[in-house]
Computed example of a mutant assay.
Amino acid sequence: MNLAYDYPLLSIFWTMLWFFLWILWFMLLFRILIDLFHDDSQSGWAKAGWAIFLILLPFLGVFVYLIVRGRGMGERELTKAQKRDEQFRAYVRESAGSTGEGSTADELAKLTELRKSGHISDEEYAKAKAKILA
Rank of each mutant, 00 (worst) to 15 (best):
K129R: 13
V68W: 00
D85S: 02
G100K: 13
L66G: 02
A51T: 06
S11H: 12
E86T: 11
T99P: 04
G100N: 12
Q82Y: 02
T79M: 10
F59T: 10
F20P: 05
L3M: 15
A4K: 15
W22C: 14
A51N: 09
T15G: 14
F59N: 08
L36N: 10
A81T: 07
R84N: 07
D35V: 07
L21W: 09
T99Q: 09
Y65E: 00
I132H: 01
S121A: 09
S41T: 14
L29K: 09
W45I: 01
K110S: 04
L60G: 05
G61M: 06
F19T: 15
A4M: 15
A105M: 03
T112A: 09
T79K: 12
G102T: 05
D6G: 15
K110H: 03
P8R: 14
W14C: 15
L78V: 06
A109I: 02
I52V: 03
K129N: 06
M73N: 02
V62H: 02
S43Y: 03
Q82I: 06
R115H: 05
R71Q: 00
A81G: 04
I12C: 14
E113K: 12
K47L: 13
A81L: 11
V64W: 00
N2C: 13
R76G: 08
F13A: 15
A90Q: 06
D122N: 10
G72A: 08
A51K: 09
Y125I: 12
K116Q: 12
Q82H: 04
L36T: 10
T112K: 07
L108R: 01
M27N: 14
L54K: 07
S98D: 09
P58I: 05
K110F: 01
R31M: 12
D6C: 15
G102C: 05
H119N: 14
Q42T: 06
W25H: 12
I52T: 01
V68S: 02
Y65R: 00
I55S: 09
L133D: 04
W22H: 13
V62K: 03
V64M: 02
E86G: 07
S41I: 13
D85N: 03
R71V: 00
W18L: 15
T15W: 11
A126S: 11
I32F: 08
K110D: 03
G70F: 01
L57T: 07
D39G: 11
K83W: 03
L57F: 03
A109P: 03
D35E: 07
E124H: 08
V62C: 07
F26Q: 15
I120P: 02
M16I: 15
Y7T: 13
D122T: 10
M27E: 13
P58H: 05
K110Q: 05
T99R: 08
I34R: 07
H38R: 11
N2F: 13
S117L: 07
W18E: 14
S121P: 06
G74E: 09
E101N: 11
L111T: 05
